[in-house]
Design a protein around this nucleic acid. Structure first.
Lengths: 325, 325
DNA sequence: GCACTTTACGTAAACGTTTACAACACCCTA
DNA sequence: TAGGGTGTTGTAAACGTTTACGTAAAGTGC
């Protein structure tokens, strides 16, 4: 049998209450002598606390639930890393729950699991729940925060990059480099995509450019490869891509049909993961700080008041050509 | 207050025992009529079971703990995906615990956390515990399994590729293509590295090749870039790399100094993740089935009797040149 | 109509902690 | 010496489930 505080109490001749106080470090409520004795005996017995019992009586578990899409984007590990580190600092464990791919049923199950565990916070990473689940979350009394997704609703916590700013900065940069025929590729039809389109169109308009060219996709490498086909008949000189994988797909498919990057086509990728270093040429990117997005989301959900938007930066690599006017 | 089975019992006029039996589906112990009534009332009240209470009385939680290195290799998401899916099928939740980077302190903490939660199994992914922790695990009474690491010790569960087979197959393939000056790059100094070296040397010897060339590294892209420098003065025609990232690093560094792949240098990468498709040329690889490694490790740790070694295959892309004899 | 089984449900203990409250010893101060 | 404070400990209830055991009612076979 695993030893319990009862065993320690029996062995040390004190009550379980005292053992509990020592073990949970309610300082000031016990003498140094008993502390030493209890710690010694606990060690001797190989005592491990029973988390379930603690959570039952405390009615809240020191765990943050992270709900993820099943398709692990190449940034999710960085986000989780940030979550994990910050959670550790705050004494919280992390439990990861997969929610399938826009699978409302699985997502619902994941949320229910988190609620049943009475976690101290729920982080939804790149996930958009339906209204029923959003209501469920709101009524649960457990704080939740959207990560890498901005819903633009009042009183809903979130931490992400500013999608409008991402695309408008990308446009600014390309215009600076002399481009005017600029497309946006691989965007989704949900919140993130919509916001990026808004930023793209605002950026274009600010420079007096009215022709917009937008192609949808799903952030994957394969999607990028397919998208290149759609650009063949068009005469854009630069493409802003919704992810590094989209950029890599476009890049490779382009090179296969003899289109040179950046000589014939410039690319600015959104994300800036290590993929950007691996391709030839390297991909100039609007780089998101995923680690910080993760760590700030933990602060956010634990009630600390921190930024909603984490800044991005442009990393110049080799995929954009400077056009002479 | 969150409703409990007591509230349901009060509202439906039965005892909490009956409510519990219905809710935990002890079929055959209740009538359809009471079942219907209880389920209806539970729904009305928005009842959620309290996992902590269940775990306390059952003395085991339906959760598998996955302990990971902090440096998320690009295959870990695939492994976790496999774990997650299979665990879901078996009704187990998954909790992820990071263990830092060969940080014995953090690893110990992660193991203790898993034990305190009385998880139903512990999966150690690409992690080598020290003797004290191994003893702790063995004495815990909780099954554990090494994932993507083979310790070659009796009675220790593990699921991985066969590292000796990986490198010997790579050697076979390169010899088939006419290579004889074959190096091994980016290998670590622990179990995995040692096994891969054994396979490499056995493979070389089997073909009558006696000169071996081994360079150590840490699986990262940067490590690959550095390694290329070491190969410059040597005259190898082919390199087997310990990971896709190592291969990508060598590839890019090589191209920068005018070494063409595969014309001047052939590469066979170990892992076969999407990285192999993204580089130019694509990387020929010994591809590991990480998803299956993950899913089988769940079976293993849950007591099902499944394979310890998951087969690998060679995927030909563009990084190996066929040398005429 | 009897003995026996089955079905459906209730009672109460148990799981391992935390914590409000009480109790006691001791010391200090007026 | 009374009164109060402080430091340390014990008692016991509480957290929300599961489940062994008991029991009453209903069904079965003869």
């Amino acid at each position: 049998m695993k030893p319990t505080i009862k065993d320690i109490a029996a062995r040390s001749g004190v009550s379980i209450a005292t053992v509990s106080r020592v073990l949970s470090q309610k300082t000031g409520t016990y003498s140094e002598k008993t502390q030493a004795k209890i710690l010694r005996i606990a060690k001797e017995l190989g005592y491990r606390k029973n988390t379930a019992a603690v959570e039952l009586v405390k009615k809240r578990s020191a765990v943050i639930a992270v709900i993820l899409n099943a398709t692990p984007t190449n940034f999710s590990t960085e986000v989780i890393d940030g979550i994990q580190k910050r959670a550790g600092e705050l004494g919280q464990g992390v439990i990861i729950l997969y929610a399938g791919n826009r699978d409302d049923q699985m997502l619902h199950q994941a949320i229910v699991t988190a609620l049943e565990r009475s976690v101290s916070g729920i982080l939804l990473t790149a996930i958009e729940p339906d209204d029923a689940d959003l209501t469920l979350l709101k009524n649960s009394g457990i704080p939740f925060c959207f990560v890498s997704l901005y819903l633009n609703q009042p009183k809903i916590l979130s931490v992400s990059s500013n999608n409008e700013s991402i695309t408008s900065q990308a446009v600014d940069y390309l215009v600076e480099q002399g481009h005017t025929a600029i497309a946006l590729a691989g965007i989704d039809g949900y919140h993130t995509g919509t916001q990026r389109i808004a930023g793209y169109e605002a950026g274009m308009k600010a420079h007096g450019l009215t022709t917009s060219c937008i192609k949808y996709g799903d952030y994957s490498y394969e999607s990028g490869r397919k998208l290149l086909q759609e650009f063949l008949p068009l005469k854009v000189t630069a493409i802003i891509t919704a992810s590094d994988m989209i950029a890599a797909g476009i890049l490779n498919a382009a090179q296969e049909v003899g289109i040179r990057v950046p000589e014939d086509l410039s690319l600015v990728s959104i994300d800036g993961t290590i993929i950007c270093n691996i391709t030839t040429p390297g991909l100039t990117s609007v780089t998101q700080d995923f680690y910080r997005i993760g760590s700030r989301s933990v602060d956010q959900v634990m009630g600390h008041d921190v930024e909603t938007f984490v800044p991005v930066r442009i990393d110049k690599r080799g995929s954009v050509k400077h056009l002479k006017k």
